[in-house]
Amino acid sequence: MVKQSLTPDQIKEYNQDGYLILRGFLNQKEVSKLYQIAIDDKAMSKNAINVNDSTGKRSKLSLWYKPGDDVYGLLTRSESLVNSVDKLLDGDAAVCHFHSKLMQKEPKVGGAWEWHQDYGYWYKNEFLLPDQMMSVMVAITDANKENGCLQVIKGSHKMDRVEHGFAGEQVGASQRYVDLALQTMDLVFVEIKAGDILFFHSNLLHRSEANLSDQARWSMISCYNRASNIGYNESTSDSASITPIDIVPDEALLTWKTTGLVEEGAGFLAKEADMALK
């Protein structure tokens, strides 16, 4: 069964705030299947990249470009999710998958992420239209203040892109502009439950604290793009970033026989790759 379509008020909220939360987008069975496959996924583990924050705490992520018939690809390509993205992105060209990543913040050791805009990275790939790009975070476990949930500056996407530079091993936004934004815009802690999803604009300023709790925080983030928005300096020229998504029915996540990622077909980001290109 196709999930409920976005309402005009929800689309307005996204355009105004730069983000939108849908509660209970995945049911308990869907979340459980996604989590169980993720924690046992050898290809995902083998290709995980460690990223240190300024204090030395470490988060892990695995990033891949090509969505397949694995459990992650079926979610990324699911009809309701793609249709929602289509309603929120500017333009009318086909929706494409840029890349996805599994974010793993383990208890006590999971590191923080600096303030940044996703387009602060993607601008260097020479995508010209940030309104035609967005990220969708699927909570695989609960995310709260204690385990380092995402923080966003409400409405900051309207600032357009701000300068980014290296902060340790990460690329972060100019702190001067972050401080100015916080003088007039609201800081929001995005506390969500497993199965909730968060849509956010490519220019929305966001960060997260380290995970100091006893509970892991796992999430999957899929990034989308319009076929008309070419990355002229996109290092993965054969990636799906300008190839229309092959949509699958929502029920495929539960009814199709699926496993974890197949390493050869996923197009993982190499461990030695520059993280500024992600």
Results as ranks from 00 to 15, higher is better:
D131M: 11
T259Y: 04
Q16W: 07
R161S: 11
P8C: 03
L204Y: 08
P244W: 06
K3T: 14
S241Q: 10
E79L: 15
Q117N: 09
S54C: 05
D196P: 09
M44V: 10
F189W: 14
Q175M: 15
V31N: 13
S100I: 00
T243L: 08
A143R: 00
F25G: 10
H157Y: 02
F127W: 02
V82F: 08
P249L: 11
D196V: 03
L88C: 05
S219G: 15
E163Y: 15
N203P: 06
E264C: 06
A143Y: 01
G91E: 00
L261H: 12
E191V: 03
R77H: 05
Y14K: 04
K278E: 14
W256Y: 12
M133G: 08
G260K: 12
A210I: 01
S228M: 10
T141M: 04
K158E: 08
E169V: 00
E251G: 05
K101M: 05
E272V: 07
L102D: 02
P67W: 10
R226I: 00
I221Y: 00
D131I: 02
L128P: 11
L6V: 10
Q10H: 02
S135G: 15
D131V: 01
I197V: 11
V152S: 00
S235F: 06
S45N: 09
A93K: 09
N52D: 05
S59F: 08
T7D: 13
S202Q: 05
L81S: 12
G56A: 07
F200H: 02
Q215P: 06
N233R: 14
E209W: 01
I245Y: 01
I140L: 15
A173C: 05
L150R: 01
I153K: 12
D250P: 09
G148S: 10
D274N: 10
I242P: 02
L20Y: 02
K124L: 07
R77V: 07
A266W: 00
A227D: 09
L205F: 06
Q28H: 04
P130C: 08
L182E: 11
K158A: 08
E126T: 03
G231S: 00
L253V: 08
A43Q: 06
S222V: 11
G120I: 01
A227I: 01
C96V: 13
V262R: 14
E106K: 14
L89Q: 02
E234H: 13
N147Q: 10
I197L: 08
K158R: 12
P130L: 00
V85W: 06
A194V: 07
I140W: 12
Y232E: 15
F166W: 15
I49D: 06
L34D: 05
W218V: 00
Y121V: 02
S174Y: 10
L6R: 07
S237R: 14
A210P: 04
K57M: 10
L128V: 13
R161E: 11
I11A: 09
S78H: 12
D160P: 00
G165C: 12
N147P: 04
S45I: 04
E13C: 06
L26C: 13
L261V: 09
L102N: 05
R77F: 01
A216P: 14
A276W: 05
Q132D: 06
Q104V: 08
N125H: 07
F98Y: 11
R77K: 15
N15D: 07
V248T: 12
R161D: 06
L89P: 01
N147M: 09
Y224T: 04
P67G: 03
I230D: 03
A270R: 13
S174L: 13
P107C: 07
L182R: 14
T259C: 04
M1A: 12
E169R: 05
Y232D: 13
G24L: 00
